[in-house]
Structure formats: C-alpha cells, structure tokens
Nucleic acid binder design. Structure first.
Lengths: 159, 159
DNA sequence: CACTTGAGTTCCCTAAGGGAACGGTCTATC
DNA sequence: GATAGACCGTTCCCTTAGGGAACTCAAGTG
C-alpha cells in the first residue's frame, strides 16, 4: 500500500525507505548483488508477481540504484546490475543480515555465510562509529539538528 | 499488501523484513528510539493511520522488538520501549541513515546529526568487517552456504 | 457535569499486491 | 518452415491492506 510518500520527510531513514523500502525491493537488490541479474531468474527465485517485479525494477532503475546492461544483442536482452548507489545499499543489507542471523536464524544457524575476500575470513557486518571505530550501540547515540532539518512549521519553535 | 510471507524464506534479510520491514515499521522503531514512546505522539509525528499504527505496534511487540511499560497508574497508560532485540535493530537504522545522508540529503545536508556519546564526536555509521575491522564493501563479499541453508528441494542438488 | 486527553477500534473507500494469461521477439528443433 | 521454447514484460481481475475520519472508553480537570 503505502500511499503516504516517505520521500518528503526530513529523515534519511524515511527517504531511504522511499527509494528501497517497499516490500520486495531489498530482496531484489540482494538477488542482483549475488548474481541473479535477469528478470525471470529473479521472479522465479523470489516467487514475486511479475507485475510487481517489473514495477520495482523500473523504480529502482529510476532512482539510480540499478541500471540495465545488455548481455545479448540478438535477441536484445538486458540484465540488471547495481550502480555505486546500489552497491552501497548492500552495506545496509549486510547489517540487516547480521541482525537476522543473530535474532531469527535459531538452532539451524545462518543460511548464508559471508566471506570477506580482503581478509579471507568468514565474517559478519558490524556497525561501527566512523570516528572512533568502536561498535555503535543505539543507547550511546545523541541526536542533534542537522543543516537539513525541517524548518519549524508556522510559529512553532523547535527545541 | 505483501501477502507473501517473507518469514519462511531461508534468508536473514527476508526474515528481518518479515519482522520489521513493513512500511512504517522502521519509522516507528526510530521514533521509539529517539524518545517518542506514546501512541498519540507517534501517530501525530509520522502522520500514520491510527489503525495501522495499532497493528504495527502489536506486531512489533509480538515479535519481541518492542514492549509496553506503564508510565501512569491512574489513568492506566503504557508507553512503548525497545527491547534488546529492538535496540540492536537501531544499528541497522543507523546504517540506513548513513546511506540516506549520503545519497538523499542533497545540498541541504543531513536533517539529523548523530553524536557518539562514547567518544563525544559527531559521527555516522560505518559497516565494517567484524574480523579485520576494515570497511565492508559489497564487491568484496563472497557467499557460502551456511548451516541453516534451505535443504535442496526434491532431487535437486544444490551447487 | 461538560470537556479534554490517551489509546485504541470500527467503518468505508481506494489503491496496491497476487496470479494467471497474453504478447512480442528471437533461437533451436523436428 | 512450422513448432516449441526462452526471455521479458504487460494486462486483467480479484483480494486485501492502507488512509482517514468517526466512534469508544476510561480517567482526570475546571
């Protein structure tokens, strides 16, 4: 559903959800990331309706998260690949995966393991402070108004 | 909509989306995180339908992401707070915020700034390798079957 | 006692998702 | 060279979830 547009909110979370937060979108991005780049393969793999898949792909492409790349001249066929913008979204997906592995995998353990090619080890994503490098915990965060904060509405003085 | 249940998929991303991926859910969690703990405040702040908010709160509570805590005896009133499970989800929200700040904030800059109380500096979330501590990039990741991988369906040999 | 606040619940309407069928284009096969 | 099959969508109808406003209920306030 989601008739309410998140894109206009002065909130980076809402804006990100507006781009890639609809149901299926993160899973489509994951598929493209792991090498499922073609319409039919994505559709079969996810069990998503073809209609919705076509909508999502067009939207993600319009948002600059995906782009089409021809992989065959005759017949003319395109596949979907991640842009830089889309690749960076995968870091969010890794953080989601880490949470899911920890809280939803249960006895069986994680369905997929990530190997960091740079260091060669099996690993998982850790969200850390860009300044001090320590793990970031929700309870250690304070919020301050940024430059892009919403201007206070009519006569309301914010903070 | 989302009639398709993500929770049954052998994928930590899908399972996480099943718990907190519906439209509004991440924004509700964000609100509770930053201190908007009461029904009416969340509803006004987000502009979400009261019906949907009630549904989401009940679901998130059932999933162990939120819990109710009484803040008044007479009249009996509860507010919503994050559980440990919910607090750790906020790390995902921080990763989302970092992406949104980078790709959607534009000229105006980020609407909200995060201060890491531990080190005292304004910061943003960086997704790093839990093993080597370097930044994790999507292109540096290899995937391997984990212990909780879906058993190959009827007669199909996976990999 | 009328009014307000907080927290939901109910109802109707509309729009989005699911599913299946159809379309077009090229290649491979009998 | 007709037929089948892969690929990539589009169209159609049906169901269901979200939006919005009104309603409920309980407790406190002037």
């Amino acid at each position: 559903m989601q008739r309410t547009r998140f894109g206009d909110m002065a909130c980076s979370i809402a804006r990100t959800l507006d781009i890639a937060g609809e149901p299926w979108s993160p899973l489509i991005i994951r598929d493209v990331w792991v090498g499922t780049n073609r319409f039919d393969d994505i559709q079969r793999g996810l069990g998503i309706s073809r209609k919705v898949l076509a909508e999502r792909l067009a939207w993600l492409q319009a948002q600059g998260v995906l782009e089409r790349r021809p992989y065959s001249e005759r017949p003319p066929r395109d596949e979907y690949v991640l842009t830089e913008k889309g690749l960076e979204l995968c870091e969010v997906l890794m953080a989601i995966t880490a949470w899911g592995d920890r809280w939803t995998a249960g006895e069986a353990g994680p369905p997929v393991l990530l190997r960091h090619r740079t260091c060669g080890l099996l690993t998982y994503a850790e969200v850390r402070c860009a300044q001090c490098g320590e793990a970031l915990h929700a309870s250690d965060i304070g919020f301050e108004l940024g430059p892009g904060a919403e201007p206070a509405p009519e006569g309301v003085e914010k903070i």
